[in-house]
């Protein structure tokens, strides 16, 4: 792909934006090395502090603009957790809210040109999904004991079908963290890569006559993709969060 691009004079490196690099120097990446992932996670934390701690420091009954946004986010996730898991699921609210905040801020910060989208990495989303999976499994067994296994035993189905369904349910249960993580990382990666590909076409006007048609088109496509990515950034955070709630519901009420 890179060589093809070079022959036309265009440079395609759509995946370079996802590279993890050390912040200082060019050495090897150890587990503790501060990298651009560290930087953008740190910025996400600062934004969360800015919105939810500094933004609400007035504790005003009539909220300021920033406080309204913080309250909106709180109400949005709180209602989601309560609607899906019920009242007893609210003890997971801080945990779910942490996931939501991290994902939504990472997704939006990733839309800044030159930024690293930390949630486009399977390493990050995989850990998030595994954390949810382990929470659901461990809490499900602690709360329900062996009854948690009823999750796989579909009582509403005819008896001969139940073992087959149980097999399917078990497989789907273990596939959950995979789909949960790849959905988020894949969405974030694909959109950004497409923008980058369109961006690579943009300088064509400097090289050949066909650029007169291609360059405006590619810029338009970048704008359109960017708008779509803004939508995707929120929707994927929402989807990840609501799926977390749905899985938590299984732990709280395992019987179908």
């Amino acid at each position: 792909m890179a060589t093809e691009g070079q022959s036309e004079g265009l440079v395609f490196h759509p995946m370079d934006q996802f590279k993890i690099q050390p912040l200082f120097g060019d050495g090897p990446i150890h587990w503790y090395t501060p990298t651009n992932a560290t930087l953008w996670m740190g910025i996400a934390i600062l934004c969360i502090i800015g919105l939810f701690v500094i933004g609400t420091r007035g504790r005003a009954t009539i909220p300021s603009r920033i406080q309204s946004i913080a309250e909106l986010g709180y109400g949005f996730v709180h209602k989601m957790v309560e609607d899906v898991t019920g009242k007893e699921g609210l003890k997971f609210f801080p945990y779910v809210f942490t996931l939501f905040c991290f994902i939504v801020f990472s997704n939006f910060l990733g839309l800044i040109p030159g930024a690293l989208t930390t949630t486009s990495h399977i390493a990050v989303t995989g850990i998030l999904a595994m954390a949810v999976f382990l929470t659901v499994t461990i809490f499900g067994f602690i709360k329900n004991g062996a009854h948690f296994l009823e999750l796989f035993w579909v009582k509403s189905a005819p008896l001969p079908l139940r073992p087959v369904l149980a097999l399917i349910e078990v497989i789907s249960y273990f596939v959950r963290p995979v789909s949960h993580s790849i959905r988020l990382a894949g969405n974030m990666m694909a959109g950004h890569a497409v923008i980058k590909v369109f961006a690579a076409f943009a300088p064509l006007i400097l090289m050949s006559g066909i650029g007169i048609a291609v360059t405006p088109l590619s810029i338009l496509a970048i704008v359109a993709m960017y708008a779509l990515e803004i939508l995707v950034a929120f929707i994927q955070a929402y989807v990840f969060t609501i799926l977390t709630c749905v899985y938590l519901k299984d732990a709280l009420h395992p019987s179908h």
């Binding site: 503790y32 990298t35 560290t38 996670m41 934390i45 991290f102 930390t118 390493a123 990050v124 850990i127």
Partner: peptide, 10 residues
């Protein structure tokens, strides 16, 4: 590296 910093951030 990513997992370590993610856990710290979370």
């Amino acid at each position: 590296n990513q997992i370590f910093w993610l856990v710290v951030a979370l």
